[in-house]
């Protein structure tokens, strides 16, 4: 077990290293940073001073070493636009993104599992077919367009919900959050629903497939033969057995929800780190782009690592296969 943990952690660190090289090489080496970082009106002497100050005259590997040394100590450079540490800017906006992503995941889980279960238990009923048709639509709907349509219906036509921003926030342990006030919920409702749609469709399909398979298993037949009530068979025997893959997918998909929040945040002007990334790409604010990519890549690698380790705890077969290989 400990061998597996160590090996898997080393592998995660290697991926992190490779990604840092790729991100650095991509953002700093492709194209000429001098053209972008330095005022085009500057004369030759000013240019050279600026190049030396930014360390752009040094060989690339040395620039990378400086970058990594900074990264390890939490210094990912300063934003050109905001004149503030890039990492600070990202972390400042992270709670908003995490709140949005968590709310979206919650909606997807609370609706997706019951609907999927229903569709799995009665696949040929009208309700079952409708749920499946809805999930195909959920996969096909372009997220940003659904966001616009939500704004059109609920903000413009009905005037029920605000179309952008986070609303007034309440401090919780020093972190500003929206979900503690009614006004905050009104701001959160549409973006969270929008972000949840795709994952909702995924969870419905996953739960339905799992339920249909589980219903054919011997332990379900046995439970029924024992004369257990239908509710107990479904809630205890079926649900518990399909939950392992579902929990794994929820864990893995959380990272992708954070990534997809980029789109939703842009539509609803939600002040999270995804919107910061889009603004930074448009303004060519390279340190912020690099910082965002490093932060999100790290989040991903940590999530993947945790899910893998958790899986090996839940399912002994994974450990055994790894120990042999």
């Amino acid at each position: 077990m400990s061998v597996y943990v160590v090996r898997r952690t080393l592998q995660a660190l290697l991926v992190l290293f490779v990604m840092s090289v790729l991100v650095f090489a991509g953002v700093y080496a492709v194209g000429n940073p001098v053209d972008i970082l330095i005022n085009p009106m500057a004369d030759q002497i000013e240019r050279e001073q600026a190049i030396a100050a930014l360390g752009l005259d040094k060989p690339l590997w040395e620039q990378y070493t400086t970058f990594i040394e900074g990264a390890v100590t939490g210094d990912l450079g300063r934003s050109f636009v905001h004149a503030a540490p890039a990492l600070g800017l990202i972390l400042e906006r992270m709670p908003a993104t995490l709140e949005l992503a968590s709310a979206a995941m919650l909606i997807a889980v609370l609706l997706g599992i019951p609907l999927g279960l229903w569709a799995g238990l009665k696949p040929h009923s009208f309700a079952g077919r409708s749920i499946m048709a809805g999930s195909i639509l959920g996969f096909s709907l372009p997220t940003f367009w659904v966001g616009l349509m939500l704004i059109m219906v609920f903000s413009v036509m009905l005037g029920w919900l605000p179309s952008n921003g986070r609303g007034p926030t309440v401090e919780l342990l020093g972190v500003p959050v929206s979900f503690l006030s009614l006004e905050g919920w009104r701001h959160l409702a549409m973006p969270a629903t929008n972000l949840a749609l795709f994952k909702l469709a995924l969870l419905i399909r996953l739960t339905r497939a799992g339920t249909r398979e589980a219903l054919l298993q011997d332990y379900v037949k046995f439970a029924r033969a024992k004369g257990l009530s239908n509710a107990r068979v479904i809630l205890v025997h079926v649900l518990r057995n399909i939950l392992i893959p579902i929990v794994t997918v929820i864990g893995l998909e959380f990272g992708s929800v954070i990534a997809f929040a980029i789109v939703t945040e842009s539509v609803f002007a939600w002040p999270g780190m995804g919107k910061l990334l889009i603004d930074s790409i448009n303004l060519l604010d390279r340190p912020v782009i690099v910082a965002y990519l490093m932060v999100i890549v790290t989040i991903f690698i940590v999530i993947n690592l945790l899910v893998d380790l958790l899986y090996s705890v839940l399912d002994p077969r994974v450990r055994l296969a790894e120990a042999k290989g």
Binding site: G26, G255, L293
Partner: peptide, 17 residues
């Protein structure tokens, strides 16, 4: 490794680069 990251993220990295 590539498939463990969502497509939109890879697309944004590449467009940024």
């Amino acid at each position: 490794i590539q498939l463990s990251f969502p497509a939109i993220l890879i697309a944004l990295i590449l467009i940024a680069v």
